[in-house]
Design a protein around this nucleic acid. Structure first.
Lengths: 242, 242
DNA sequence: CAAAAACGAGAGCGCTGCTCTTGCGCTGGA
DNA sequence: TCCAGCGCAAGAGCAGCGCTCTCGTTTTTG
């Protein structure tokens, strides 16, 4: 058996986790740029050079934090989705989006690490991909369920997009029509535009009451990908207002 | 007269500009995090402490670059818009969006500086606001022209958004209906979501042929704010495809 | 013309990421 | 069971960073 290798291996795992924890603490407190290997080592009572036995460079430590952040976000979105799994697709879509926003507001520096400008001169390595796509996979699933074979007709694509749309469809979800995939990917990017603008201060003095605004906006995104209201026509009846 | 103060003042202006130019060069080459005061001074043949006579800190230099970047983006968008000033609002909208994307792709690090995660621990000072709002003002203008008093009915707002929508409308464009302002602000944020995802590599292996995708997506944004096609119904006629 | 302000140069402080060497203790194979 | 070898912590050190302070010199100003 390869588990329980020995005290040595177990200690290594524990120290590695302790480093990541302390690093995450500093990341949350001060942001990625002020995250310092020396400070992490200092806080853990070890000398800075010892830390390089666990992470060969600062970038490698950041990469580990990035993967964890993607996973944390994905988990939040998935568990929020699980709680409304029985609801209609539109509500499930909005729930996932709201969960993503909630996570971002709770972990601004980690959000900045993964969806803001990548840390200077740094390009995300391949091993982040699976963790990074969890929210996307969730959104695809919601739309897939909504379309259950019916293939609701959507906004037709311009001619010069047809082949690319078919490639995207084949790559991401062959069972969904290309128009839907295109709308889905665009909505996916736009979701993070909404979150980023709020988080990075672009909405200051522009949008004040942000949660209803966000819900409304992602509701329109849901509509864009073809997720309609539970009761199709009951959308025009709002209470009167001056 | 206060102009032509003397050789001293003129020299100061020139040196300040030279510092900004060299800093911009390093920013474009290596990104904001690798921008070093000492390296800028070195390249200019001065000692690093002398540079502090012109910019009291690294953040102040970055702030100057941020304002310049906003202005550069705003100028690109405005001149692109000027060239299609006579066209329909939908085409003008798309033109402005395409110009913003083009600028972002040409100046990725400057884009990251203003729309990515703000440089660690850094909050944009108030003096960046006018430069930052140039693209937004442009988009508002396009929509305003399209609505020329007619007030096309749009998606009704949920009850809990009415007061906020009215506040936003009063603040940004009192002559436009609140529903339109809400859609406009959301589209504004979503536009930068599309650009950011492409620029920061989130579209890698997802969207390959990006320009048509972008045009299509911002076309839908135009639709969201109520800008319709020139010939209202001629949208469904695409060439056949397998 | 003299006082004052602006400026360039240099030294220095404390911090960073990272490397290299040294010595200790656990661990796996003979 | 022994012991060679590897993993590990520690320390010193290097080059770079932002920033401060001092000290002559030059320019502007009253």
């Amino acid at each position: 058996m390869s588990t329980a290798q020995g005290a040595r291996a177990r200690a290594r795992i524990e120290v590695t986790a302790a480093i990541k924890d302390e690093a995450r603490r500093q990341l949350a407190a001060e942001g990625a740029a002020k995250l310092s290997l020396r400070a992490v080592a200092r806080e853990l009572g070890m000398v800075s050079s010892a830390l390089y036995r666990y992470f060969p460079s600062r970038d490698d430590l950041l990469t580990a934090l990035i993967i964890d952040a993607y996973d944390s976000l994905g988990e939040e979105a998935e568990s929020a989705h699980a709680e409304v799994a029985a609801a209609g697709p539109r509500e499930r879509w909005i729930t996932v989006c709201v969960a993503a926003r909630r996570w971002a507001l709770a972990h601004p520096h980690e959000y900045a690490l993964i969806y803001g400008s990548p840390v200077p001169g740094y390009t995300a390595p391949q091993e982040t991909v699976p963790a990074a796509s969890r929210v996307g996979v969730l959104l695809i699933g919601v739309v897939r369920d909504a379309y259950g074979g019916k293939g609701v007709a959507r906004t037709p694509l311009p001619a010069e997009m047809k082949t690319e749309a078919q490639r995207m469809s084949a790559e991401l979800a062959p069972d969904l029509p290309p128009e839907v995939i295109v709308a889905l990917v665009a909505s996916w990017a736009q979701l993070y535009g909404l979150i980023g603008f709020e988080l990075f201060g672009q909405f200051n003095r522009v949008v004040e009451d942000r949660e209803p605004f966000f819900r409304h906006a992602v509701g329109r995104l849901a509509h864009d990908v073809g997720l309609v209201y539970p009761e199709q026509a009951a959308t025009a009846g709002g209470p009167p207002s001056p």
